[in-house]
Design a binder for these strands. Structure first.
Lengths: 338, 338
DNA sequence: CAACGTTGTTCCAACGTTGTAAATGGGGCT
DNA sequence: AGCCCCATTTACAACGTTGGAACAACGTTG
């Protein structure tokens, strides 16, 4: 295939190691040889064989990003930033989809040992902190998302409780009194739901409002629509709903509109994630916008730290910022250009 | 780090090669040794070092998927299928985002030479067929999408002209007579637009209808909304619009609704891509659904063929199927559950 | 002028794997 | 017993790279 160091060395009339030194910017090379070698390098179009380099150095230059599903917009957007952040360290990113299944998550965690990747940024759904802690493997691992706090590995997330409380406070500030939380899950499934539920409760309790909840299995549009439909059919339907993510909220919006009611006049809706769809739905969706670039950057930086300073340091928790995006689904539809 | 063949060989009391033979399922190994070796393998938790294996075999087991942006839903959904299809060959997929920029696309094409990946599935926007043909590198390459037909490499896409004609025919069958095409682009930018425009023209010409077009720079919601707004302001606005992709259509939908008009009563809308958002918008979006799993599978299969049978074969064109998804944005809003 | 340090370059080994060729050993044949 | 054949196992080399030791050439110093 391509030219190797040996080919270049032959052409330049020097040793292989000298070529290697030039390639790696080693300082003590005479200008004359350097010139000769560089000429040979370009003439042959030399590209280092990364498999060989990796074998020698024990690094692959590839990290894995494991997440439930790439076509959930939140994860697609997050992936984009992770890839960009990793590129700054000249890392490639392979993406592994777990579908949130325990089996696949274990596989991913296990597969890391194949020396194919130097580290893993992992957004788990099903796997537990105990199982992570029991991991024999010492590959660098950074957790991303809400599933596990204070676990056995570095962790990046936004402050979910506070974010949930803030957005609920917003609904309250609109004068709504029957505010539901949509997206409650069995504790054992995911850590996201309890945190967002806690924030919601803090807010409504502070104002002495009643609690309404609707459960879902997964954070998908169809589930949001179904749960919303159940809420609407109840004897006293809510006048505002905080959906635990934007997909649920968009599904809920569809259900409200399909039932002939108006958003936000009859039911105000808010989500969390700030996916692009919500900026173009009708009405546009009020939501919490986690700083995805910051989340991705922090995750990559933590991984970098782990890989450089050999392990041993205690796990680190980092919080990324977020902003409230107040849009039409709570404050009203304003016809006109976007 | 992990145990190597040598460690296992020592523990089992055999040669390194014998262990390698067991690992690779070589037939002529006595049951007794095989047992011994397998015991040692599990005891040490042996994992092959893939860098070494790759170095030896000249393969990395990683392919690259280069596309404009991961957070465009169509590409996110497509990526999901590519990753799944690649997993069947035990390949990992690294994703490279080009943003459609010529600079990044050249980089990607160039970076393939780094021996980091065995092959590339490439969805180009800016790069030309001539430049691809001039590529010195002989790494396996499969083109995915509409940009380049009959180019210098294997290519997978749906029949864009026919798909565009079919969906336009659908609009005509509704009795609409002022049908616009939204998404026309300068030829030099992308091959998608001319193909879809051609299909649109075939259909309206066959029925003697007038042609309306609206241009955009990129296939994004905001552009769709802006272009739709322009159409609505024209002296004789359309009563139906075929948008060249779903994002444009969703942006257009937003613009129509924001202007106080109804979809589909005043303006029927159709897209192309069948992204998930369109299945939950209000109204839901009529569109062309390319068989993304088939597209991904074909691309991966072609790559496999290239990698196995050493090159030389002439480039191959493959067409994936598609279906029309007739939804509310053309046939009317039907309140009720989804 | 010998001993020395500095700079530039080369030699050797090793990373972990696998293809090739060669060695080993047991069994059946003459 | 001597021989060959075959299944099984091993030794060796090589993939392309880089760290470290070794070495050569040089000018500097005592």
């Amino acid at each position: 295939m391509g030219a190797s160091l040996r080919d270049v060395a032959e052409l330049a009339g020097v040793s292989v190691k000298t070529v290697s030194n030039v390639v790696n910017g080693y300082t003590h090379v005479s200008p004359a040889t350097r010139l000769k070698v560089e000429d040979a390098l370009t003439r042959l179009g030399y590209r280092p064989n990364l498999s060989a380099r990796n074998l020698r150095q024990g690094r692959t230059g590839v990290i894995a990003l494991a997440l439930p599903e790439l076509d959930a917009p939140y994860f697609a957007e997050l992936s984009r930033f992770v890839i960009q952040a990793a590129a700054e360290h000249r890392w490639l990113v392979v993406i592994e989809q777990t579908d949130g299944s325990l089996r696949r998550e274990r596989q991913v965690l296990d597969g890391v040992r194949d020396h194919r990747v130097d580290g893993l940024i992992f957004s788990p759904i099903s796997i537990g902190a105990d199982e992570l802690a029991a991991r024999t493997d010492d590959t660098a691992l950074v957790l991303l998302g809400e599933r596990i706090y204070d676990g056995p590995a570095d962790h990046v997330a936004i402050d979910n409780v506070r974010a949930a409380r803030d957005i609920t406070e917003h609904l309250i500030s609109l004068g709504r009194t029957r505010i539901a939380a949509l997206g409650v899950q069995d504790q054992s499934v995911s850590g996201t739901s309890p945190l967002r539920l806690a924030g919601y409760r803090e807010a409504i309790a502070a104002h002495g409002l009643p609690e309404f909840t609707a459960e879902v299995e997964r954070y998908q549009r169809a589930e949001g629509a179904a749960a919303m439909t159940r809420l609407l059919r109840s004897p006293s339907p809510p006048d505002a709903v905080f959906c635990f993510n934007d997909l649920l909220a968009l599904g809920a919006m569809r259900a409200v509109l399909a039932s002939g009611l108006r958003v936000p006049e009859d039911v105000a809706l808010a989500g969390l994630d700030d996916i692009e769809d919500g900026r173009y739905s009708t009405p546009t969706l009020t939501t919490v916008a986690p700083d995805k670039a910051q989340l991705a950057g922090m995750a990559v930086d933590l991984l970098k730290l782990r890989l450089d300073g050999r392990s041993g340091r205690p796990p680190k928790e980092m919080r990324a910022g977020y902003r409230l995006m107040i849009r039409e689904s709570t404050t009203g539809f304003r016809p006109g250009p976007l």
